[in-house]
Each structure stands twice: as structure tokens, then as C-alpha cells.
């Protein structure tokens, strides 16, 4: 197992470890710092907070925001809201899967893209919608979605 730089989480723990009920907040910071929630960091959290590792694992696997594995450079969050569904989000999902060869929750072999279905992003009027690294893409068609992915790939190759 890769070892994480535990010193990065210490300030977060200094701030929250003693405050009851802050486990979710701590895990959110952990994910911000490391991109996901590494196991050794969870043990560190356990040491500092006194919360058992089993409980931390329970919380980390309950909420869909948390990831226990690193993700690709581009995180495609495909909205699963009702409006998106009515406007054909399933076809967008199929097009993405077809283009990248990954299904929900998976990352491409080159580590470039991760696909994640998410609950409503709240941009219902632009449905169907996906969000990639904070940028929202609306009124998608399968073609348009594929185009966006290809341009991101190109962009990363040029870097």
C-alpha cells in the first residue's frame, strides 16, 4: 500500500479532532487534500479522534461523495436527476461508456477519466447535464458529450 503524507491532515485534525460530530467534515477535508480517502489516513483519523476504524469505514462508505480510491484527472459527474432522465441522460451515459469504455464508478486505464453518476446537480433547465471538474455542460446530446470528452483528451495531450 502506498503511504500517504500524513502531515497534510494534521492541521485538519488539530482543528476538528476534539469537536464531536466532525467526522464527515474531517473526511471531506481528507478527500480535498488527497483526492480520495486513503486507508492510512483513516487510521490516523481514528487515532486522533478515538472513533473506531470500523465506524470511520462505515461513514466513508455510506456517503456517495467519498471515494476510497484515487480518481482520474477528469471526473465526469453525470447528472441522474429526473429532468435529465426525461431528456435522455441514459443515452448520454451510453455514449460516454461507449467512448471511454468505462461504466459508472470506473476510471479509464490511462487514468484520465472517471465516470460517476450523481444525484441532481440542480441545473434541470439545461438537462441533460454533466459536470467535469467543476464545469457544467448542459443541453447535451450523445454527440456533444463525446465531442467534449475528445477535446478534453486533446487538451491533456497538449499539456
Amino acid at each position: 500500500m502506498m503511504e500517504s503524507n500524513l502531515s497534510k491532515i494534521e492541521p485538519v485534525l488539530d482543528r476538528y479532532a476534539a469537536e464531536p460530530g466532525s467526522l464527515i467534515t474531517i473526511l471531506q477535508h481528507t478527500q480535498e487534500i488527497y483526492g480520495y480517502i486513503p486507508k492510512d489516513v483513516m487510521y490516523r483519523i481514528s487515532e486522533r479522534t478515538g472513533i473506531t476504524p470500523a465506524e470511520i469505514m462505515g461513514v466513508a462508505t455510506f456517503y456517495s461523495q467519498f471515494r476510497l480510491k484515487p480518481i482520474g484527472r477528469y471526473l465526469i459527474m453525470l447528472c441522474q436527476g429526473t429532468a435529465c432522465h426525461v431528456n435522455g441522460s441514459e443515452k448520454i451515459a451510453a455514449a460516454i461508456t461507449n467512448e471511454l469504455g468505462i461504466s459508472d464508478g470506473e476510471t479509464t486505464d490511462d487514468g484520465l477519466f472517471s465516470l460517476k453518476s450523481v444525484a441532481c446537480l440542480g441545473c434541470c433547465s439545461l438537462s441533460p447535464v454533466m459536470m467535469i471538474n467543476g464545469e457544467t455542460y448542459g443541453r447535451l446530446t450523445p454527440d456533444k458529450a463525446v465531442e467534449i470528452l475528445r477535446s478534453l483528451r486533446k487538451e491533456s495531450e497538449n499539456k
Binding site: 464531536p20 460530530g21 466532525s22 467526522l23 464527515i24 467534515t25 473526511l27 471531506q28 472513533i51 465506524e55 462505515g58 461513514v59 455510506f62 456517503y63 456517495s64 461523495q65 467519498f66 450523481v118 444525484a119
Partner: peptide
Amino acid sequence: AGAGAFVCGEETALIESLQGER
């Protein structure tokens, strides 16, 4: 900030979540 769970719209689940629990 919630962490992504629809059930946390339910009052008591929301409270559990506020307390840092599942």
C-alpha cells in the same frame, strides 16, 4: 456540508449525519 445521501433529507437521518454518523 452533507456528503451525498438522499435519506439525509429525513429529519432523524439528517441529525445522525450532523453528528458525523451514517
